[in-house]
Design a binder for these strands. Sequence first.
DNA 1: CAGTGGTCTAGACCACCAA
DNA 2: TGGTGGTCTAGACCACTGA
Lengths: 238, 238
Amino acid sequence: MKKYEQILQALEKQILDKAIAEGELIPSENTLAMRFKTSRATVRQALKILETQGLIQKQQGRGSVVIAREKVNFPISGLTSYHELQDMLKLDSLTDVVVFEELLIDEKLAALTLFPLGETTFHILRRRRVDGAYVILDEDYILKSVAPNLTREHAATSIYAYLEQTLQLTIAYAQKEITIDFAQPTDYDLLDLNTDDRHVVSVKSHVYLTDNTPFEYTHSRHQVDKFRFTEFARRTKY
Amino acid sequence: MKKYEQILQALEKQILDKAIAEGELIPSENTLAMRFKTSRATVRQALKILETQGLIQKQQGRGSVVIAREKVNFPISGLTSYHELQDMLKLDSLTDVVVFEELLIDEKLAALTLFPLGETTFHILRRRRVDGAYVILDEDYILKSVAPNLTREHAATSIYAYLEQTLQLTIAYAQKEITIDFAQPTDYDLLDLNTDDRHVVSVKSHVYLTDNTPFEYTHSRHQVDKFRFTEFARRTKY
DNA sequence: CAGTGGTCTAGACCACCAA
DNA sequence: TGGTGGTCTAGACCACTGA
């Protein structure tokens, strides 16, 4: 394992286990460099990640302080997949695969997904039951050339686990958008909406690989009163 | 100016001006290091920021590619204030200061704002008119000890400009939460809600200084069909 | 295989904070 | 004033990509 990852994980563990309490200073960069027998640059690489994650706040002339934040967070943020989220929160949840098919990418689909015209895409519709109620509808388009052997079983468990662990694909970034849309007939059919709900929360994402290929387009629709999005944001330029 | 900032700004400009087109490679790290008469580490510091901003995608063995993305983005993200946003998008917009008062921080307020019990806070209620309709209601609590001389005039223009430029405060980070809430009587009074809207989008933030003092709590409420949140997210650990 | 970005070293000087 | 983090240098070797 890389040295900065060792340092990162050691500190992460100490912070999450509360071995270093909120508000306390972590050891100085020089101390850490000596302790891990490395240079300050390598220590700083690890600390930068902790800062980005919102686990520490650096203060010039003073040190790096562990900051608050329950690590609960219901992130649509950071590209966490539904399955990972479910693991993390130990939700009582279940996924139905409603549609699993292949489609030819026509002009309309190309405009929506940003996939190349003429190729083939998987089209997957899943609904998610949490605590006994169907509250999320997930529609995914995944470019077939990227994952030719994708099956309905992968869709029922975790597509991301298959892509990253089995296929060793590196997912790089996504552009996401959250809006409030009118509920459609499909939403009323497949979700347990309250009778007088007119809206659903709509989360759309274009997801890209490191070579900048758009390979996934997701559109998920959430019952309004079950939706929560949290984010840790920094003001400065890192 | 710091060297990495020079490199950052030079590249940022070239990308935003489309001097380097989307999909093209920027010069290699070694080339940039020579061109700016600096070391590779300094160049990499600048490139890291461009990567975080979603302007480039690095590829080991190949180079750094300029990636798409209109820089429009309607961010609640990244701590951009309403006033900055307005500038950026050249919105026809207007701010009413409905309430500007000071309050003693009792237990209830302390729990909400995370401010110290017994101190004083400003309480500011503003509504925002965009394109002729009142669509956003902003409720702010700002700790008086941090900005003792804050006035109604600052609230009418930009509180953040006052805090950062005049008071030279450094705003470090924020924890934000987006949910869909039932519209309250105040919302119906002050916003131009559609008659059958039952909901508003609720965005709450606790904002902190570099010394980890919580100094602002904001709760904004948006008309559902005017709300849009976009985000650029990376999957990896930077 | 040449060139790219990823990791790492062992220094240096500076700005800032707290005691 | 001593210790902290912020910036920077001038190297090195490695992993990976594309021709």
